[in-house]
Design a protein around this nucleic acid. Structure first.
Length: 439
DNA sequence: TGGGGTTAT
DNA sequence: ATAACCC
């Protein structure tokens, strides 16, 4: 028996989910400490997207309309959070800090990170065993108040994981001044679900025996990360309302309704099974900037908005140091029914001669890019007919490293250790180089 | 309902 | 290029 226990737990991962408390509001309170003890909301257009706990005590909820929020709480202080730059910068500092502990850090949005600490736990377990130490103390809460069995190495590993999670949170607080929650479990799904059980600034570890309790505690299937609104609607059609329904539902029927891949994935999720790896995010895959508005109905307005978006984006891309090879324009057209759906986009490769100019200071890359984006715009909208836009978005993607012959600031947080020897084929080469770029 | 992101098809 | 998912 003990052999099967150790064999099972040896294959068991330890994953931490770190979830910052009301992240935008925290960043704003750091930027302006006077806001510390006041009820604070972060506003984007007519929405309070998040708020601090002072505001929550007074009944403010995330994504509440500004109108409702002010009615509920006239003393509410609002700061505009439409420019994400401060949040994005702080967000990467958090990811970078976690990356100092361990290389496997995956971002989820700006305020969440998964960290696969399996190796770190193994190292500490061996240290403990060598030093003959037989007791370990859990940090934070244990889900369900489940008793810890120190003879079960799965328990011991997760307890060590809880200590590491505590260190993560302490480091984030000491170095960045941010508080947050953490969940420790054997996979991403479970770590994420358990991190929310005690809410501001606390942490929780899930032991395997409580997995089913955690899953069944979810009142609705949409609470399972990975099951979104579309899938939920299809499932409701099938009479599947909660996690137990999904667990018990015939696989074959589910596969016919949702396709094999989705069906198998979400049914495993319903049991708390998730073998998806923690995939290091690294630098961003895309840079985008968008703005929404009541109405934009002329080509001139469109051009002005695009210029604004572009100038912000070019700054960001310059700091990053890589070169984008694709641009995309996205629009949302007014429609009285469903407001925030129905986006369309067109994209195209960036001409090589323009790509060259991205890193440079003085070159005017903006006018030709505006021209390209206006062409994309005309692929979607017949400008001779009336139109009514409510959103414009520009996105640069397909980012490639500069050829190593070119120097420049590395914008991302990893100051890459250069590989042992400088021989050629380590980094990914840029294949798509225009004339004159060859090394 | 904002202003971002990712992966799969 | 879109559709789904995440925050």
């Amino acid at each position: 028996h003990s052999k099967s226990v150790s064999a099972r737990s040896a294959a068991c991962r330890a994953v931490v989910h770190v979830d910052l408390d009301c992240f935008y509001a925290q960043v704003e309170m750091i930027r302006n400490p006077e806001l510390r003890d006041k009820p604070l909301g972060v506003q984007q257009k007519n929405i309070v997207v998040t708020c601090n706990y002072e505001a929550r005590k007074l009944g403010i909820k995330k994504l509440m309309s500004v109108k409702d929020a002010k009615e509920k709480c006239p003393q509410l202080v609002l700061v505009n959070g439409e420019d994400l730059t401060p949040y994005r910068e702080m967000s990467y500092k958090v990811t970078e800090l976690l990356g100092e502990f361990c290389p496997l850090v995956e971002r989820l949005g700006f305020d969440e990170n998964f960290v696969d600490i399996t190796e770190l736990v193994e190292k500490r377990l061996k240290q403990l065993q060598q030093s003959g130490c037989s007791t370990v103390c859990v940090s934070g809460h244990v889900y369900n108040h489940q008793a810890i069995n120190l003879h079960d190495t799965a328990h011991v590993r997760l307890v060590i994981g809880s200590q590491i999670a505590e260190e993560f949170r302490e480091a984030i607080h000491a170095r960045l001044g941010l508080t947050g929650c953490a969940g420790v479990a054997s996979n991403k799904l479970l770590s994420k679900l358990v991190s929310g059980t005690f809410k501001p600034n606390q942490q929780t570890v899930l032991l395997p025996e409580s997995c089913q309790d955690l899953m069944r505690s979810l009142d609705h299937i949409q609470r399972v990360p990975g099951i979104g609104s579309k899938t939920t609607k299809r499932l409701e059609t099938l009479g599947v309302r909660n996690v137990c329904d999904l667990q018990a539902f015939p696989s074959a029927v589910l596969e016919k309704e949702l396709g094999v891949a989705v069906a198998q994935r979400i049914q495993k999720l319903s049991y708390g099974e998730d073998d998806s790896p923690v995939t290091p995010s690294g630098p961003p895959q895309s840079f985008s900037d968008e703005d929404s508005f009541k109405k934009c109905s002329s080509e001139v307005e469109v051009k002005e908005k695009i210029e604004e978006l572009l100038s912000n984006l070019l700054d960001r891309i310059h700091k990053d140091g890589r070169q984008p090879h694709t641009v995309r324009l996205t629009i949302r057209q007014f429609s009285s029914t469903d407001k925030w759906f129905h986006r369309e986009s067109r994209q195209c490769p960036i001409p090589p001669h323009l790509i060259q100019k991205f890193g440079k200071e003085s070159s005017n890359v903006i006018s030709p890019l505006v021209a390209i984006l206006m062409k994309l715009f005309r692929k979607m909208i017949d400008v001779d007919l009336p139109f009514h836009l409510t959103l414009l978005s520009v996105c640069f993607s397909n980012l490639k490293d500069l050829p190593s012959s070119k120097k420049g600031s590395i914008g991302f947080y990893l100051k890459q250790m250069s590989p042992p020897s400088g021989s050629g084929k380590r980094g990914r080469e840029v294949e798509d180089v225009s004339p004159g770029e060859g090394s």
